[in-house]
Amino acid sequence: MSREQLVQVVLPGIVEPEGLEIREAPVPEPGPGQVLIAVEATGVSFAEQQMRRGRYYDQPAFPFVPGYDLVGRALRTGPGVDPGLTGRRLAALVKVGGWASHVLVDARDTVEVPDGISPAQAETVVVNGITAWQMLHRKAHVRSGQTVLVHGAGGGVGSVLAQLATAAGAKVIGTASPRHHDQLRALGAVPLDYRTGDVPAQVRRLAPGGVDAVFDHLGGRSVVDSWHLLAPGGTLVAYGSASTRDDTGSKQWPVLKILARTWTWNALPNRRRATFYNIWAGHALAKDRFRARLRADLTEVFAAVRSGGITPGIATRLPLTEAAAALRLAESGTATGKIILVP
């Protein structure tokens, strides 16, 4: 074991943000195939907000270290890993474990961050960028001239989706709170205030024939409305159940309902299609294919950041030891951009 200190944020159970615990331990050494990453930036996503409530559908048992993704320098490599990786800036999607000063990661699960992108900029587009890219290009196959509806277009995934869809030549209709409307207009998107009026009716006025794709993170009734807004040949991509974040009961049931609806709709004799997007699909059964796809897609996202096609939105940077304040801020809904934790 190393003399360096490992600092981790631990979620001990269903607690308020202030119930997060800071723990220290010796830094572990990488094993075969592993790389030890000195974390430079990790972030707060919607997943951690759900996990704190015990509402994320496949979260591990308490206690555990949250943190969906990370960016940092390779500090040491284990047996079987190219030692030339040491010193390189890497990004990794980990689902849990990212809220720490040092993280052991399988070297095959890392993606190198190109020069010219800061750790915080890269962090904003790891989970959010992969999600947006794969839904847009691998699920909905959005093309120039199409019209898409992005729910939560001011949020982490939604804002990247709006930028990527615009870059692809699509017309974007985005639901968002008013403070994001100027930003969306600057992209060429049409903003809608989801808190006022009948959103489906507003969308139909803008796209009388329906939209070619809907990206829905809300779940619940919104998924049904989204399906009925599709044009012939359109695709609904559901990727969450944010509307049930504060519910009680089974954490799997909201997702299972969405899956049941997509299966039912796809069985109907129509030209529309529905799918539920899971960023981890294929990870267990086709790891090599999963890794290759993740590396290819995140590389495309980083290239878009470098070219200006994506502007990373950073709300604030806080020390890792202030994770409780960061989570509280994220849950307030007042932050614009990603909240970055810096060990």
Results as ranks from 00 to 15, higher is better:
residue 42 T to S: 06
residue 24 E to V: 14
residue 17 P to L: 10
residue 27 V to C: 04
residue 45 S to D: 13
residue 28 P to E: 10
residue 17 P to D: 10
residue 28 P to W: 06
residue 45 S to F: 05
residue 47 A to E: 10
residue 32 P to N: 05
residue 45 S to L: 06
residue 27 V to D: 02
residue 11 L to Q: 09
residue 24 E to H: 15
residue 20 L to Y: 05
residue 43 G to F: 00
residue 36 L to N: 00
residue 20 L to C: 05
residue 35 V to R: 00
residue 24 E to P: 05
residue 41 A to E: 02
residue 35 V to N: 00
residue 30 P to M: 07
residue 29 E to V: 15
residue 44 V to S: 03
residue 21 E to R: 15
residue 16 E to M: 12
residue 42 T to M: 01
residue 24 E to Y: 12
residue 42 T to I: 04
residue 10 V to D: 08
residue 38 A to E: 15
residue 31 G to W: 06
residue 23 R to M: 13
residue 38 A to K: 14
residue 19 G to Q: 06
residue 25 A to Y: 10
residue 41 A to H: 01
residue 15 V to G: 07
residue 48 E to S: 04
residue 30 P to N: 07
residue 9 V to N: 03
residue 47 A to D: 10
residue 19 G to I: 06
residue 15 V to A: 09
residue 44 V to G: 01
residue 21 E to L: 15
residue 15 V to R: 08
residue 13 G to L: 06
residue 35 V to E: 01
residue 42 T to E: 01
residue 18 E to Q: 14
residue 41 A to F: 01
residue 11 L to N: 04
residue 11 L to F: 06
residue 33 G to N: 12
residue 37 I to G: 01
residue 17 P to F: 08
residue 36 L to K: 01
residue 27 V to Q: 02
residue 20 L to G: 03
residue 21 E to K: 14
residue 30 P to W: 04
residue 28 P to V: 11
residue 32 P to R: 08
residue 42 T to R: 01
residue 48 E to D: 08
residue 9 V to D: 04
residue 12 P to W: 13
residue 42 T to C: 09
residue 48 E to V: 02
residue 8 Q to V: 14
residue 19 G to W: 04
residue 29 E to N: 11
residue 25 A to W: 10
residue 38 A to L: 05
residue 12 P to Y: 13
residue 40 E to P: 01
residue 17 P to G: 11
residue 36 L to C: 02
residue 22 I to S: 09
residue 34 Q to I: 12
residue 15 V to F: 06
residue 20 L to S: 03
residue 39 V to N: 00
residue 10 V to T: 13
residue 14 I to T: 15
residue 22 I to V: 15
residue 47 A to G: 13
residue 44 V to T: 03
residue 24 E to S: 14
residue 11 L to Y: 04
residue 23 R to K: 15
residue 9 V to S: 03
residue 25 A to S: 15
residue 18 E to Y: 07
residue 9 V to Q: 05
residue 28 P to K: 08
residue 15 V to S: 08
residue 32 P to E: 11
residue 22 I to A: 09
residue 8 Q to P: 02
residue 30 P to H: 05
residue 13 G to R: 09
residue 12 P to Q: 14
residue 46 F to L: 11
residue 34 Q to E: 15
residue 36 L to D: 00
residue 40 E to S: 07
residue 36 L to V: 03
residue 32 P to G: 05
residue 25 A to M: 12
residue 10 V to G: 07
residue 47 A to T: 14
residue 13 G to W: 06
residue 37 I to R: 01
residue 31 G to S: 10
residue 17 P to Y: 08
